[in-house]
C-alpha cells in the first residue's frame, strides 16, 4: 500500500523530468478551468445525455493518446468505476437502475477528464496555474515542496523499514514491527527537518527572497481562443439538454 502510494506521488513529480510531454499549446490555466467547469456541469446535469456527450468527447481525446498512456488511464479509471458501482448497487434493488448508471458515468467522466488533464499538463504547469490565478505564493510553494518531500521522505522511510526487516530474524521480529514504526518515523522526522534546512539554504543561494515567481508566462494564442469557445458551447448544450429532457 505504502509502495503504491509512493509510486503514485512519484509519478506526479517524475512526469516533469523524464516524460516526453511537450509544453501545452494552450494556456494551462484555461485547460484546467474548462476541465473543472465541465466536471461541475456534469455533476449538475439531471440526465445522462450531457454526461454521455462529454464522455464521448473525452473518449476521442483518449483515442488519440499513445497506447501505453491509454492503458495507464484505463487502469486508473477502473477502481473509481468499480467502487461507485458497488456503492450504488442498492439503487438497482430499489428499481433505480438508471440512477446507478448515471452516477457511475458522472464519476467515470470526472475522473477521465482529470486523468486527461494530467496527461496534457506537467506538474510544473499545474503549479504554474496557481501562481497565474494569484494564489498566495506560500500556498503554491508549500504544495510544490510537500509533494516533492513526500516522495523523498517516503523513499527514505521505506529504505529504513527494509533495512530493519533485513536485520530482524524469526517470528518475534513480526511483533516488534509496530514498535519499530515509532523509531522509523522519528528518524524520518529528524531527517526531514535537516532536509528542509538544506533546501532553504540552497534556495537562498539561488536568490530566493520569499516570492515564488513563474519565469515564463503563457501568451494568449489562437489555440486559447478556440478552446475558449468550448465554454459557451458547453453552457448552451447543457441548457438544451436540461430543457429537452
Amino acid at each position: 500500500m505504502t509502495e503504491r502510494l509512493l509510486k503514485a506521488i512519484a509519478a506526479i513529480v517524475d512526469s516533469d523530468s523524464n516524460s516526453e510531454k511537450k509544453p501545452s499549446r494552450m494556456s494551462p490555466a484555461l485547460r484546467l478551468a474548462v476541465a473543472v467547469f465541465a466536471i461541475v456541469l456534469c455533476a449538475c446535469s439531471r440526465n445522462a445525455v450531457f454526461v454521455i456527450t462529454v464522455l464521448t468527447v473525452e473518449l476521442i481525446r483518449m483515442a488519440l493518446l499513445k497506447p501505453d498512456r491509454m492503458i495507464y488511464v484505463l487502469k486508473k479509471l477502473v477502481l473509481p468505476i468499480v467502487f461507485t458501482l458497488l456503492i450504488m448497487l442498492p439503487a438497482v434493488f430499489f428499481g433505480h437502475r438508471s440512477t446507478m448508471l448515471t452516477v457511475t458515468m458522472k464519476v467515470a467522466e470526472s475522473v477521465l477528464i482529470l486523468l486527461l488533464v494530467n496527461e496534457d499538463l506537467s506538474w510544473k504547469e499545474i503549479t504554474g496555474v496557481f501562481s497565474e490565478i494569484h494564489l498566495p505564493s506560500v500556498i503554491t510553494m508549500t504544495l510544490d515542496t510537500t509533494v516533492r518531500f513526500l516522495v523523498l521522505l517516503g523513499r527514505l522511510a521505506e529504505r529504513i523499514h527494509e533495512a530493519y526487516l533485513l536485520r530482524s530474524l524469526g517470528r518475534a521480529a513480526d511483533r516488534r514491527k509496530m514498535s519499530a514504526a515509532g523509531g522509523i518515523l522519528g528518524t524520518v522526522f529528524l531527517k526531514s527537518s535537516k532536509m528542509s534546512q538544506e533546501s532553504f539554504e540552497a534556495m537562498q543561494c539561488r536568490g530566493y527572497n520569499g516570492a515564488y515567481r513563474r519565469l515564463s508566462r503563457h501568451r494568449f494564442c489562437i489555440w486559447d481562443a478556440l478552446y475558449l469557445c468550448a465554454v459557451p458551447m458547453l453552457v448552451i448544450f447543457f441548457i438544451i439538454t436540461q430543457k429537452a429532457i
Partner: peptide
C-alpha cells in the same frame, strides 16, 4: 438514440462513441 434529443444527434454521437471505442 437519446430520448428527447433529435435522432440525428444521437446517431452522430453513437457513431463517434463506436469509432472511438474500436480505435482504443
Amino acid at each position: 438514440s437519446f430520448s428527447g434529443l433529435p435522432d440525428w444527434f444521437g446517431y452522430i454521437l453513437s457513431a463517434v462513441v463506436g469509432v472511438a471505442l474500436l480505435v482504443i
